[in-house]
Simulated scan of single mutants.
Amino acid sequence: RMAPQPSEPAERVGRLRKSIETLAPYAPGTVFVTNTGAPLEGNMHRVMDETIRYLRDLCPLAADLGVSLSLEPLNPTSVNIESAIWTIDQAMDIIDGVGHPAMGLCLDYWNIWQQDDVCSAIYRAGDKINVLQVSDWRTPFSTTDRLIPGDGLIPLHDLLHATWEAGFRGACTVEIFSSDVPDSLYDGDLNDLIAASREGLEQAWQKG
C-alpha cells in the first residue's frame, strides 16, 4: 500500500539494494528497516521463504558498508496489505533463517503490543533488537493514527523495561503518524509535540 510499485519482489529488493549502496557511505552505522511486503493471494509461507532468501543476499552488502538491516513485523491491521507477519516470533523465524549478524529486529510497540505475552517475546528476541519505535494506541480512525507516548493503551512501562532487560541499548525513537483523523497531532505546534513525547516516554519509564 505505501509503495505499490514495482510489484515484482526482485525489483523491490533491487531498489533496497540501491538505497543501501547509495546512502550507507553517508550514514555509517545506520539500520535500514524493511518488512516482508504483502503476500500474493495470501501465500504467507512463500513470502516468508522469499524474505529469508533476499535478506540473506543483502546482509553481506550491508555488513561490508558498515550498516545493518532490521525486519519489522506490522500490526494485524496490515496483514495481507503491507505484511505477511504480525508477531515478534514470526519475525524471529525469518531473522534466524537469515542467520547473519547484520540482520536484526525492528520493535515497534504500536505494531506488536497486542501480541500474547509480548514481554516474553521481547526477552526471546534479545540482542537481535536493533531498532525501537514508540508511540501509543487508540482504536484507529485511519491507517495513520498514533498517539503521543502515554496518551493511549499500550503498557509502555512494561515494554520499555522488557526491551532494556533484553539488552537493547540503542535509540528510543518516537514514530507518530497522525493523518486523516479528526484531531491530527500535526495541526498543533510540533515543538510541543516533541516535548510532550519526550515527557511521555520519561513518565512511562518511571511509572511502576
Rank of each mutant, 00 (worst) to 15 (best):
L71I: 11
C172T: 09
E21H: 01
R15Y: 13
R124H: 04
P140Q: 11
T51V: 06
G126T: 02
L71P: 02
C106E: 01
A121T: 05
I194M: 09
G150S: 10
P149F: 11
N191I: 03
N35W: 03
P76M: 08
E82C: 12
P25W: 08
P9R: 14
V131G: 06
M92R: 10
L69W: 04
N43G: 01
I122R: 11
W137Y: 15
P149E: 03
G150R: 10
D116T: 07
L55Q: 13
D158Q: 14
V67Y: 03
R53V: 08
K18P: 00
A166Y: 01
Q114N: 12
R15Q: 10
S135R: 08
I88M: 01
P60I: 13
D96P: 04
R56H: 15
L16D: 00
S78G: 07
N35V: 07
I20Q: 09
E41F: 10
S19R: 12
M2K: 04
F168G: 01
T143V: 10
L132N: 01
D64L: 01
A27T: 11
Q5N: 07
W164L: 02
T144R: 15
I154R: 07
A38F: 07
A102N: 05
W110C: 10
E11T: 02
L74D: 04
N35G: 13
N43K: 14
D183L: 06
Q206I: 07
